[in-house]
Computed example of a mutant assay.
Amino acid sequence: MNEAITSRVRREFPMCFTATRRGARLARRLVSLRLDEWGHPYGSDLNQDLTLIAAELAANAVRHGLVAGRDFRLRLVETGDGVFRVEVSDTRTERRPVPEHAERPAAGDEESGRGLYLVARLADRWAWTGGPGRPGRPSGRRSGSERARAPPGRGSRVRAAR
């Protein structure tokens, strides 16, 4: 995830949202709408998976990356070779995602720790970067995931983590 997208970007949807629950909800809804407009209907596995990934990453940006008065940024990309990338950036650098949360679901009584588990199960790859900014890119943390479109004939996937 830390490397640049090497194939040609076919379509892109970048947008900033307020770092509130309402902003996270709007990000989720607009990702689903954009995927539908790009030919991936609301009920399709791809639309549902990418919408849930966007929702979890946006919720994490609001909950763990909130800095008063600062927004979070979401970027949805479809590459020429059928890979979709969802990236969410926020302005916090001192709070890091816990990689163990992606490997096991949180216990029933824990308040958090399920979002990255879902992202890891639905995405083909996921990662995060963080640190000081550089020209044209603010400091902060960026989480992202990639998911390839299902090849023809693959059909629906059955997942337990829904």
Rank of each mutant, 00 (worst) to 15 (best):
L118K: 06
R11S: 01
L50S: 03
R157D: 12
W126P: 00
V67L: 15
G113Y: 05
A54D: 01
R159P: 02
S44H: 05
F17M: 03
P135C: 01
G80S: 13
V9F: 02
A4K: 12
M15R: 15
N60R: 00
E56K: 05
G80V: 03
F17Y: 10
A160Y: 11
Y42S: 08
D109S: 10
A61D: 01
V98R: 13
W38T: 00
R34I: 09
R159S: 12
T51S: 08
L50Q: 04
G133C: 01
A61C: 03
R10N: 12
W126H: 11
P97I: 11
A127Q: 07
A102Y: 04
G82F: 03
L26Q: 11
G65H: 04
H64F: 15
G131A: 04
L52P: 05
L76S: 08
D109C: 10
Q48V: 15
R28W: 04
S145I: 08
A61Y: 05
A24L: 00
M1H: 13
D71G: 09
M1W: 08
P132W: 07
V77H: 01
T51G: 11
G136D: 04
D49T: 09
L50F: 04
G131S: 03
E78C: 05
N47S: 11
A123Q: 04
A107M: 07
Y42D: 08
A58R: 05
S44E: 06
E3V: 15
T79P: 02
P152E: 00
P135A: 06
R25T: 13
E12Q: 13
E146R: 06
G115S: 02
R125K: 10
R137C: 08
R22C: 02
R121V: 07
L57W: 03
L116G: 07
A161Y: 12
P152V: 00
A54G: 09
S112R: 14
L52G: 02
E56M: 03
R25W: 05
L26E: 10
Y42V: 11
R95Y: 10
S143L: 15
G144W: 01
H64R: 09
E146Q: 09
D71E: 12
D90P: 02
R29Q: 15
R92T: 07
P132L: 13
T93Q: 14
L35C: 05
R154T: 14
E37L: 12
V67T: 14
R154L: 15
A161R: 13
L76I: 00
L66K: 14
A54P: 08
R134P: 00
L46Y: 00
R137M: 10
P151A: 02
G43L: 13
S44Y: 01
G82A: 06
R141M: 10
E78T: 01
N60E: 07
T79V: 01
Q48T: 15
A160T: 14
A123Y: 05
G43F: 09
V77M: 05
S32K: 13
R141F: 11
V9E: 06
